[in-house]
Design a protein around this nucleic acid. Sequence first.
DNA 1: GTGAAAGCGCTAACAA
DNA 2: TTGTTAGCGCTTTCAC
Lengths: 339, 339
Amino acid sequence: MVQSTRITSVEVAKVAGVSQATVARSFAAPHKVSDKSRQKVLEAAQSLGYVPNAIARSLKSQTTNIIGAVVPARSEYWQHLVAEISQQLAERGSQLLLFTFAKPSEVSSVVEAVRQYRVDGVLLASAFIDHEAMVDVTSLGVPAVAFNHPEAVDISASVSVDNEAGSAELAAHLVETGHRSVAFVGGNPETGSDRLRYRGAAKELRSHGIVCPYIGAGSFDYDAGYGIAEALLQHFGGVEGLPDALMVAGDELAFGVVDGLRALGTSVPDDVSITGFDGLPQATWAGYDLTTLVQPAEELIREALGVLAGTSDERSHLTVKGFVRVGRSSRRPAVQGES
Amino acid sequence: MVQSTRITSVEVAKVAGVSQATVARSFAAPHKVSDKSRQKVLEAAQSLGYVPNAIARSLKSQTTNIIGAVVPARSEYWQHLVAEISQQLAERGSQLLLFTFAKPSEVSSVVEAVRQYRVDGVLLASAFIDHEAMVDVTSLGVPAVAFNHPEAVDISASVSVDNEAGSAELAAHLVETGHRSVAFVGGNPETGSDRLRYRGAAKELRSHGIVCPYIGAGSFDYDAGYGIAEALLQHFGGVEGLPDALMVAGDELAFGVVDGLRALGTSVPDDVSITGFDGLPQATWAGYDLTTLVQPAEELIREALGVLAGTSDERSHLTVKGFVRVGRSSRRPAVQGES
DNA sequence: GTGAAAGCGCTAACAA
DNA sequence: TTGTTAGCGCTTTCAC
């Protein structure tokens, strides 16, 4: 039963015996219409299967009620956040136009699309969105917020977890639980997240007299972590040489490191403690049960959307504190010589 | 630098010294404009920072170039598919309006939004979208395709993996590799996927003289799987009583089952082989390395989008074959008495 | 409280 | 090839 003729407020008006304006008001501003009229309109609309056309409304009102989000396609972390974004937008009655990119080079075409659709705001995810792309977006006057992209300070607002403090907290936890040697496994070193997380860890550890080397996996994905495991063992001269703990720059990466080490016969956490960063749902899965810094996703997204909605400052640079969740991927190491 | 005055094709026309229509054509149908004019227009547009307004175009052309997708918020499977959908739409130059729901009861309000935005097509995911919701969507004349929702046969098109055949293939693989007793761990029994997967497995096994009991976890998520582990052990009277293999209705659920069993001291696959269904990226993670039926996500989505684009039949009910990926979560069981 | 009328920024005849 | 013109379906003054 395809609609033969498109139903517009005009058809509804005819059936209801009122003007088109009254129909429009019945939906957009019900209180400006008498109960009687509204009743008639609603009935007519119901029988005709009418729903207001959001496109037309957007054109007239210059506001689409759509928020755009630009995120990398293959990332457990972003998939996690998109779910949260979508839920919160639904609560606010907004829609989510989702743009994903597989390679950073795709970002520019994505930005083009974002601009064309006149979204009310854009959430720019990931460190791979470069300066130029952000300028393009904001130049149209579209509010933008860089999410966990600590670098984008001068162009638009940003909301980030406190990477440095979080990482320091994790490090402090390790020290407290008796770890005396710690190495850091980084993801993509070109990202601010990676640098800040390392810095936070290194500083905190140094204050306890521990020097923390940086070992780069190259990216934040599982495979990178799995692949670096062998290099780690070589680097440290086998299981015996491993530090008490490895702090890994992201959860997904950490899953890879855990699996990679275990595949090579290393026990986590008996031979080495491992921590992550992000607080993904999978981090609580018993197979990993990762000690990690949980990013308060709900709060982060709430702040970010607040910026876009104008509730928060336009050019603010918020930083939200995360918290350590202790899992069984880390534990008090055996005292030297006790093994 | 917020745009003081909105830039439209009219401003561009003024600067370029041509008519507004020529500006519009320069973008929508470049070949209908002389090189000289187009050049001038493009320059003017560039200098003004003009991009065509997709909303206005949509209103006039009655086509938004947007595809809607309605999916459950928290599901590893759907997060996986959304990434694929988004990528393929980008290739086609379309946008993705993403709607997620946490509870089935939220679906109706989501459908309302889908209708308002006059999307060019809707991908309806999940068995939790009921009949009424589908009728609502399709009644506006919006092409819809039910994805892996084998039940929705009469209302709109559907694209699904061949659940029954896939499950049968998995069962056949188990039989081939020496498994003589198999039980099925189901997810949500109200879904067609669950029923068909069980049916496929049971039939195939029966043809080999194996009776396959159904044990329900209630839903498809990790926690359900983790939680059912203890019940499984009780049901079978401990590790010794476990069948050679457990076929689990979905990968995420299977992760939970694996972890739950392991937490209780059961070895997977030494004490029991486990298979999943879906072929999620995480299934290849070494911690699980799940033997599973891989749904060919790319092909499934391609078909689904083909239906929406009118490339494929409007009311077709496609079924795509998956394939078994063998991991280390299953293995030839020890011969009776050999342990 | 209601209606008439003027656009929002495009597209697509139609004319020139 | 280019310009003119009439809408797409709504919101929103402005009268009544």
